[in-house]
Design a protein around this nucleic acid. Structure first.
Length: 766
DNA sequence: CAGTGAGCGAGCTTCCGCTTGACTT
């Protein structure tokens, strides 16, 4: 058979037989999953003929993968008898401008070459014609199977007697690639059908709900299985935030002194039960009762805690950590990761520094494990565990790629810092640290807890000391604040401590936090909604449609977002639900297992769904006229109130006397801080909504005040300039004064900072 | 650094999931 000839000719006989043996003992996913006998029998003789006729011309094998960076690597591994090309993802899809699904005839999809991909497809056809065999090597998941299927069909249309086989591998290592090439299989039609069902369902849902919104709310809006659930989650959290009523509570700290040490304890119990202080009077009552009582050490406990390193990054955890630790948006993280993946010039050679960045797996290739263990053994021998640590990948994961990890462990962040820009280096550092740490031993911490009795009050002094750094030896960029040690002297039971001061502090209970890029992605991934390639775009689409805004890294729904969510939740509660995707996935699994027919599934959903959409098209009351939000601004031209409207370029203020009065202006975000300027700071963009948003004075060019930091409508108590959103590693997301000559900084913990201090006779140290 | 919204009623908007450019800072 032609395929056998071509594959065995690529590698030496010894290595070929070795790998076959390995595959037999440890059946990997890389091996063919369907028996080769499923291949159309009619093609076999033809293949033989072609091969016989041109056996001397050394025809190549064409391998088609999705990513060009991957193509380059694989070509290197496979050698000169192979040509490796990239499809750049899907080439064939439904038309954009119409439904493209024949709902009358078994939901037959209308497949077209994606706009802009025609040339690429032509190139593939050209190379396929020259090739003896085409190996479809798109990703080993549902979408990859569909890509392979579409490519095969497109190529077969133009090329007679085309020989194609499907190969899969889950890691880009020489062994895995060669093994895959030696065990080609065939397309999994059930998997292709599952993708078809997914695609048709998403199209039908999206292209039915969106027009309903156009008619009832506003042109150009959108809804879909994924984005609408994300919006719902954000809206529901916002309701919790709004309905939350902060409650006052107090804490009481006691500062002690022994020798050169000063340290403090927290009141944990009063009169034998847990200390709860609702107001200042209750705290004062306790302080008065214990004021002249001695402070005696009543208990000393010591325990040891071990901290395991975390699993290497997936797309989701990378985006979360980069957002929390570096302040990157998901979009920025992915752009930087793409750069690291595609390659950075190190000296004279371009090197892909990380593995593929869109993955849901924490799996690590054996080769990479060997390399990282070698590096740890050489650089931190005491921290090398006897065995490699294996992390479990989520059950729902498609597992087509490895975890995100550095490709070259010896390229430590420090050693290649000069070749990377600041943000690339920061992202590379967390990827490198997280991966290397994941294969090192845990850190051990000694936790100390000392109880001090003062009358009927019990204070607890907590401290910790790192006994063994373990994996933390390689953690620098990722080091957290709470890793710092608190030093407390040796204390004995019965010992009396010298009290310096009692320190009462007022607090308020904190409501639920709004979602950030990090937490919404975490939530979506947990619910199985969206895929690694779509997490960042989901947030982008909600922002672009003005369904949510990002304020101080928090995602806040707009009025428009709430209106849309209310409509969708009341009309399609089942579709706009996290359970909908879960149910879909279950059905797709059954399609993949050949247990169910995808057309029936879609039909069962579609008929009642379509009926509901059609009836709402007639019955639902339009909110088109009531989208404008009232404001307290007054039109300076006619005195009528101004309203906030959403236009093509975002929100703006317009006179409610329209069309008699056509006055419009930008939404003011803050007062201009320039002396003698009565202008307002408004959001601007370079041209036609392109480029990064900046914030300038409305009186430009009379006043040229500009900044890239977004103003919040709060002013500095020190200098009166407006405050802005800032982010740095030390404080994370926080408020800061825009005045460069002013040092006023806010921590994000606004409640504590802004709370009025009661009980003034007790010193409040800050 | 300018524009945005209504209506004349044409023709358009939209989904999720795979992938990079070709554009700008």
């Amino acid at each position: 058979m032609a395929t056998d000839n071509s594959s065995s000719s690529t590698t030496s006989k010894t290595s070929a037989s070795k790998m076959t043996a390995a595959a037999a003992t440890t059946p990997k996913k890389a091996a063919a999953k369907k028996p080769a006998s499923k291949m159309p029998a009619a093609k076999k003789p033809a293949a033989k003929k072609t091969a016989a006729k041109k056996s001397k011309s050394a025809k190549k094998t064409l391998v088609i993968v999705e990513s060009p960076a991957k193509a380059k690597t694989i070509e290197k591994y496979l050698g000169t008898r192979f040509t490796v090309l990239a499809s750049m993802g899907h080439l064939i899809d439904l038309p954009k401008s119409r439904l493209g699904v024949d709902v009358e005839h078994d939901f037959a999809p209308e497949y077209l070459t994606i706009r802009g991909k025609a040339k690429l497809l032509k190139d593939l056809q050209k190379e396929a014609k020259k090739a003896e065999l085409v190996l479809l090597a798109s990703d080993n998941d549902r979408e990859g199977e569909a890509i392979a299927y579409h490519i095969r069909n497109a190529l077969s249309q133009k090329i007679e007697n085309l020989q194609t086989r499907r190969i899969v591998f889950n890691e880009i290592t020489p062994q895995a690639i060669r093994e895959a090439v030696q065990h080609p299989g065939v397309l999994d039609e059930d998997k292709v059908n599952a993708q078809k069902a997914r695609r048709v369902l998403d199209r039908v849902v999206g292209y039915s709900l969106s027009p309903l919104l156009w008619k009832k709310v506003k042109n150009g809006l959108s809804a879909g299985r994924v984005q609408s659930v994300a919006l719902r989650i954000i809206c529901e959290r916002e309701k919790e935030v709004e309905s939350f009523i902060p409650e006052e509570y107090w804490t009481l700290a006691a500062d002690f002194k022994k020798g050169r040490y000063t340290f403090s304890g927290e009141l944990v119990s009063w009169q034998g039960s847990k200390a709860v202080m609702k107001n200042g009077a209750e705290v004062n009552h306790i302080i008065e009762a214990i004021q002249d009582k001695p402070c005696l050490v009543s208990d000393v406990r010591e325990s040891e805690k071990s901290n395991k390193p975390k699993a290497p990054f997936t797309t989701s955890t990378l985006q979360q950590t980069a957002a929390n630790r570096l302040g990157f948006t998901s979009k920025k993280t992915m752009q930087l990761a793409q750069q690291l993946y595609e390659g950075i010039n190190i000296g004279t050679t371009r090197i892909g520094l990380i593995t593929y960045m869109r993955t849901d797996s924490v799996r690590i290739s054996d080769l990479a494990l060997q390399e990282v263990r070698k590096w740890i053994g050489e650089n931190h021998p005491a921290e090398l565990p006897t065995q490699a640590t294996h992390y479990a990948t989520d059950k729902k994961a498609e597992d087509a790629h490895e975890a995100i990890r550095p490709t070259m462990i010896p390229y430590t962040p420090d050693s290649i810092a000069q070749y990377l820009n600041k943000d690339q280096l920061r992202l590379y550092s967390i990827i490198w640290e997280r991966f290397v740490a994941s294969q090192m031993i845990p850190s051990r911490i000694r936790v100390n807890s000392v109880d001090v009795a003062a009358g009927e009050a019990l204070f607890r002094i907590s401290s910790s000391r790192i006994v063994e750094k373990g994996f933390q030896k390689v953690i620098k960029q990722l080091a957290s604040k709470e890793d710092k040690e608190v030093s407390v002297p040796e204390l004995q039971v019965g010992e009396e401590l010298k009290l310096q001061a009692y320190r009462p502090e007022q607090h308020f209970t904190q409501g639920p936090a709004r979602f950030t890029d990090a937490s919404i992605i975490k939530m979506l991934e947990e619910k199985g909604i969206g895929r690694p390639s779509t997490y960042a775009p989901i947030i982008s689409v909600l922002l672009e449609r003005y369904y949510v805004t990002r304020e101080n890294k928090q995602l806040v729904p707009t009025t428009l977002g709430r209106i849309i969510n209310d409509i969708l939740v009341s009309s399609f509660p089942d579709v706009v639900d996290t359970g909908f995707t879960a149910g879909m996935e279950t059905m797709l699994d059954e399609v993949e297992e050949s247990k169910r027919d995808w057309v029936h599934i879609i039909k069962d959903f579609y008929d009642p769904f379509k009926q509901k959409v059609d009836s709402l098209m007639d019955t639902l009351e339009s909110v088109r006229g009531s989208l404008d939000e009232p404001t307290d601004k007054v039109c300076e031209k006619c005195g009528k109130p101004m309203v906030k409207k959403l236009g093509r370029f975002g929100f703006f203020l317009a006179c409610s006397g329209f069309p008699e009065c056509r006055n419009t202006k930008s939404v003011p975000l803050a007062r201009c801080p320039r002396p003698d300027c009565d202008g307002e700071i408004v959001a601007r963009r370079k041209s036609k909504g392109k480029g990064r948003e900046f914030y300038g004075c409305s009186r430009y060019p009379d006043c040229d005040f500009v900044t890239y930091y977004k103003p919040i409508n709060t002013y500095c108590p020190k200098c009166g300039w407006f405050l802005v959103e800032r982010f740095d590693k030390k404080q994370g997301s926080h408020k800061a004064c825009i005045n460069p000559d002013c040092d006023y900084l806010h921590t994000s913990d606004a409640h504590d900072q802004d709370a009025p201090v009661q009980g003034a006779e007790h010193v409040r140290k800050d």
